[in-house]
Nucleic acid binder design. Structure first.
Length: 150
DNA sequence: GCCAACGTTGGC
DNA sequence: GCCAACGTTGGC
């Protein structure tokens, strides 16, 4: 049984067109423990995720990606020149883990306002007030309700 | 650009 | 272990 996810990307940093061009990418830069734990412990290879544009006008779902690797260290945590550098992380004991994701498709854009209009989606993490988690689980019911709009 | 909400840090 | 201060996120 696959699980489903929603993964936010700041649209100015990395949008669906970059994902489509790259085909695969390491999901670098997650620096929140709960989001890390989802990637490290709960994601499975083959799981599908919505690619979500945050800080966009408007924000919303722009595509689908597939989890395509086991959990592995996010190498940017060791890179002093990276904005994601973390001086508390060591190669022996990495703090931040990531997954590689594979481009599946660009979808019809589903804005956050559209999502709010879907009754089956009202409990989605991304819709909760003050939600800042960059990776959230999506239920099968939510996934299917959104699929039916694409 | 604003600002509410959040997670993290650090003094105690 | 508390909690105020701070920096960041992210919708608008």
């Amino acid at each position: 049984m696959p699980s489903y996810w929603l993964m936010k990307s700041d649209v100015e940093d990395y949008a669906i067109d970059g994902m489509a061009r790259d085909k695969r990418t390491d999901w670098v830069g997650v620096r929140n423990y709960q989001a890390r734990n989802f990637m490290r412990d709960l994601m499975k290879e083959g799981d599908l995720a919505f690619f979500y544009h945050s800080n966009a006008e408007p924000s919303g779902i722009a595509g689908v990606v597939k989890i395509s690797s086991p959990a592995k260290p996010d190498l940017t945590q060791f890179d002093k020149k990276s904005k994601y550098y973390d001086e508390g992380a060591t190669k022996e004991n990495p703090r931040w883990m990531l997954r590689e994701v594979e481009f599946v498709k660009k979808t019809k854009f589903v804005s956050i306002a559209d999502l709010r209009d879907i009754p089956a989606c009202k409990n989605m993490g991304v819709l909760q007030k003050g939600s800042r988690l960059s990776i959230t689980p999506v239920t099968e019911g939510e996934w299917k309700a959104i699929q039916s709009l694409l």
